[in-house]
Amino acid sequence: MLGFALRRLIQSVLVLFVMSALVFAGVYAIGNPVYILVSPQADQAEIARATAALGLDRPLWEQYWTFVAGAVGGELGKSFVWNTPAVQLILERMPATLELALSAMAIAVALGIPLGLLAGLRPDSWTGRTIMAGSILGFSLPTFWVGLMLIMLFSVELGWLPTSGRGPTTEVLGVPLSVTGWEGLRHVLLPAANLALFQLSLLIRLTRAGTREALAQDYVRYARAKGLAMERVMRVHVLKNIAIPIVTVTGLEFGSLIAFAVVTETIFAWPGMGKLLIDSINVLDRPVIVAYLLVVVAIFVAINLLVDLLYGALDPRVRLAGARA
């Protein structure tokens, strides 16, 4: 067990290392950020000074070495433009992104499963067909377009919800959250709905397929024959049996929610990590780009590690396989 964890940990460090080298070289290949950052009046001496001040005058290997040396000590460098350590910037933005992703997840689950059950129960009815048609739209419409349409409809035409931004935050256990207040909820609703759309469609289709399959099973027929109400059959027997794939996919898709948040955050001016990444790429703010990817990779590695360890704990075969190898 310990050996397995240790091996995975070493693998993870290797992944982080390779990733950082790739990103470093990639951003270096694009160009010198100083040309974008300096004021137009800057002369050659000032450009050279700024290049040196950011350490960009050194050979690439030396810059990378400095970075690795700092990273080992937990220091991932200071942003070129934000005047702040890169890690601090990312951690500061993380609650906003997680809040958005979790809200989207909640919307997807709260709407997707009931709608999927309904569509699975009456696949040929008008309701079932409408739900399925809607889910196809949810799959295929581009996020940024839907986002703009949501803003135009609910904010500009109807005036019900704010167009963009994050509501006022309150500290909950040291983490600034906006969903604790009414104003914050109003702000998060549109971006979360926009982000949820894809997951919602996925969940509807998954639940519907599972429901249709389950409904044809003998245990459902027995339950019906026993005289149980359809409502109880659905809730207790069907839902429980189709829950496993739904939970698995929901968990897996959480990662892609965070990743797709980039687009939604940009449209809704949501101050999250994704928007920070896009802004940083635009000005080649390498410390932030590298730190962002490292943090995200670290999160994914940690989740995978946790899942593997859980599997190991739950399933002796995994542990055995790990011990033999």
């Binding site: 703009l148 803003i151 904010s155 500009v156 704010p162 963009s164 940009t266 449209i267 809704f268 001016a269």
Partner: peptide, 14 residues
Amino acid sequence: PSDPVRTAALLAGD
């Protein structure tokens, strides 16, 4: 920074 959103914010009175 997003152009359509800035316009929308003005249209909506935000």
